[in-house]
Amino acid sequence: MARTRTWISSALAASLLLTACGGNLGSGSDDEAADFPDGKAITVYVGQDPGGSTDLIARALAEEVKNELDVAVTVENKPGANGALAAQELAGKTADGHTLMIYNGSLAYITPLAVPEGEAPDIADYDIVTGISQDDYVLVAAADSGLKTMDDLKGLGKAVKFGTTGVGTGSQLSQELLFAQAGIESTAVPFDGGSPTLTAVLGGQVDVGSIQLGEAVEQIEAGELTPIVTFASERVSYLPDTPTAVEAGYDAPVQQSRAVFAPKGTPTEVIDTLADAFGKAFGAESYQKFNEDNQLTPNEVDGEALRQQWTENLDSYRTVTEEHQIDLGGDQ
């Protein structure tokens, strides 16, 4: 009998303890916008797998913002469809600033060109807190292939086989634009992400590939890869000797970009508080070192400026792919 009583009381104590811990089924919160974040945690969605560039950026920022706002900031990976799944979930969350997302530029201005109408999210359906940084693409070839310049590619004699990191990626877009404008016959060979593409280029399986600078730089420095052009709008500081595609005469500026998104309807004061916190995070020494170590170019513009950047990108890419009859998606 006594045993049962002890058992009951410990069960009661346990349940009281549990109720004290916050759940995460949260629907509407009563926080005043002015008190944001008011001690409640912030969740940041990342639409990619852990370990990738977007994920690392999210985690680096979360560390800093956590200190600025004095609340827990956790990164939640929700991979799928280049971030479309995470974006979909974000749209369904309460617009109180407690759920954010690190949104990829490619989802905003490249994916819509590769998938059927309505399958890619529209950035008009979200509020934007701030831009973060940009990641450049570089066209590389294996050092022992002897290919160093665009002229070498033109003189190859057969169709250039180029590796891409997937359908609807910046890697594909940059190369399609480049080769179409240069009048070089080419065949796209899609791989599953940066690493396999890099491996294929190094191993000479494909002639060239376009990958993010951060992934290629070590091999370039080791002399295993030759950078031919970069797809930035200006010469990249990390590769001072490599011309940009634009310099070489081809209108193919393509960059990966990231920004902090929030569900539509987030109060302006909340956005401002967040923008402020992220702004301070950008200034932190450890974050700046992170950018340097990963060859990222800061793009810390405000929400509206970013929206304009990305909308312009989408429009100009749409125009130029139509002009050169490039179809990023299905070939039926």
Partner: peptide, 9 residues
């Protein structure tokens, strides 16, 4: 493990 499974408590 801080898994974000929906939880009440």
């Amino acid at each position: 493990l801080a898994v974000p499974i929906p939880h009440l408590f």
